[in-house]
Design a protein around this nucleic acid. Sequence first.
DNA 1: AACGTTTTCGCAAACCTTTGCAGGAAAATC
DNA 2: GATTTTCCTGCAAAGGTTTGCGAAAACGTT
Lengths: 335, 335
Amino acid sequence: MEEISLKTIANRLGISISTVSRALKNHPDIREETKKAVVQLAEELEYEPNHLAFQLLKRKSNAIGVIVPKISYPLYADAISGMEAVAEAEGYQLLICQSNEDYQKEIKQINSLIASRVSGIILSVSAHTTQYDHLLRIQSRNIPFVLFNRDCEQITCSKVLIDNHKAAFEAVRHLVSLGKQRIAFLGGPPHLQISQRREQGYRDALTWAGLVLNEELIQQVEFSKEVIMETISTLLNSPLPPDAILTYSDQIAQRALVMARQRGLRIPQDLALIGFNDEPVDELLEPSLSSIRQPAYEMGTEAARLIFKELNSAKFAYEKIILESRLMPRGSTMG
Amino acid sequence: MEEISLKTIANRLGISISTVSRALKNHPDIREETKKAVVQLAEELEYEPNHLAFQLLKRKSNAIGVIVPKISYPLYADAISGMEAVAEAEGYQLLICQSNEDYQKEIKQINSLIASRVSGIILSVSAHTTQYDHLLRIQSRNIPFVLFNRDCEQITCSKVLIDNHKAAFEAVRHLVSLGKQRIAFLGGPPHLQISQRREQGYRDALTWAGLVLNEELIQQVEFSKEVIMETISTLLNSPLPPDAILTYSDQIAQRALVMARQRGLRIPQDLALIGFNDEPVDELLEPSLSSIRQPAYEMGTEAARLIFKELNSAKFAYEKIILESRLMPRGSTMG
DNA sequence: AACGTTTTCGCAAACCTTTGCAGGAAAATC
DNA sequence: GATTTTCCTGCAAAGGTTTGCGAAAACGTT
């Protein structure tokens, strides 16, 4: 009924708490006979050591804090999956929070994680985070800290990213090689640096290809479904519509694909499409959607690994891991 | 540099720890002047209360343990999202584990959560869990415990489910109303009771409609993509192929849709399809996929709410919440 | 000045574990 | 029989917080 502690076992056996503790740890100082009795009673009572007390003693919890914009974005779900695998192997657990793209909530959650004395924090900044004092506070407390996917140039810390500039550049190059001339870019939330870098990659690729840079073909969308549809609509209705679109996310590209289909546009002849993230369903669409694959699960494992690396080495240099992304050409570009 | 505790503040101010504690809690016993000094110094030193110590004192952590088969299944990602929202409002955090459909891992994680003294556990059993002693152990410790989505009849506890029998029944009724005669069922992992119940709903609906029950049209698939494709292939290649398929998950139905399309079958005339889960992409497929919507996010919020309800009331009766599922008829059944 | 009341604060216990050190008892050695 | 050695076990501190209770100080009243 009540909580079983070392004390419970000690009292029942008429020995001291420290003996019980050592017996359970198979300490050589303890007589075999005593050990046996202790272990048996512990099993009988279903004793589980109290992590809380241990953590208090060690002044840190065996938990890694994770803050992502939204757990249900497939990329983050996969990344968390990867972190969980590494953490589990190290005997750690994950404390997972979602910022819901809200800057204030991000701050609150960081404070909460600090109060919980997590051993490390892994974070992808929200779309509305423009100040970074709260991130500096993590570092000033010497808590191992890793940024992944959504970077933040102003902060110097370990990072796990892909080369967004290069990924966008190559996507555009692919479109150019197919003879596309009026290539549009549907970017994500403007404050997100990964969105900015993808846009820059897009711009640089156009310049590289000697194509005209048309600002009307560059749009930014937030996450709402309605805004996305409206922006796509405007773009397709313009007097000189694009013949190809590169988007910030698959969510946008998938929607564009359906809307283009409904308008009777031939894909990819009239309009080619490339998305970002390579969600599993991309290959099920008609036509299947070309997309840039990001190693989401691996991002998670690498981020977690960096935390433990920092945790286990006295002096530690920040590490920046750039994982390979890969364009997956499919029906929406290759006819 | 070093850890800031109540003691640090107390020493600096030459007062006792308990006074500092009370001052920060705005206890009426403390003089305004003292409070002001304490609060100011606390802010200056960026004091964050140590949750670990508090939790040890209260003999429980402010965390809810969550075990799901896989975080990256959209249904679980959404459900976790819902739990997180409720937990956050209550000042709690989520400890998230994934069993990866592994029975042994599920046991290990439950023990680990118990050792962490979580305030409650929310669980969806793995596909390979056939014994339930580990779940009983949770209850014998009086830890609030909620099962969601994947039920387990042998355990009496609070639950958040949908009526899987009814959902499958109505899906079949829909297919029958379209004139379908040879309706197949592609079930999930055989040990999962939700899979069994969906199958039973399917069977009962056929009987109700006066249709022949053909065991060859009932197949079970595990989660691997290859097995799914092979099973679908066999089904479509049989001498008397089905004219409709109800599947355990959207993942299966989506794949069936693509394979049928590739074979030149007309959907829904030659083959109608209904999936389970109503994933967002269903409406983007060609034709769009009919599916049974499950309120995943709401399952999460309700499950979390039940934990807190149990946590906050001395005597508590188990509660079983059946949420409404809803058939979303689309192109794969409605031409 | 004596007493009562209120205001303000500190002591100490409790939560559970780990671990350095000391100490007791038995065994071994001289 | 005395001393050393070996083996086993217990004491106590530490980690940070909350809180009941007691006590000191300040104030008010007669």
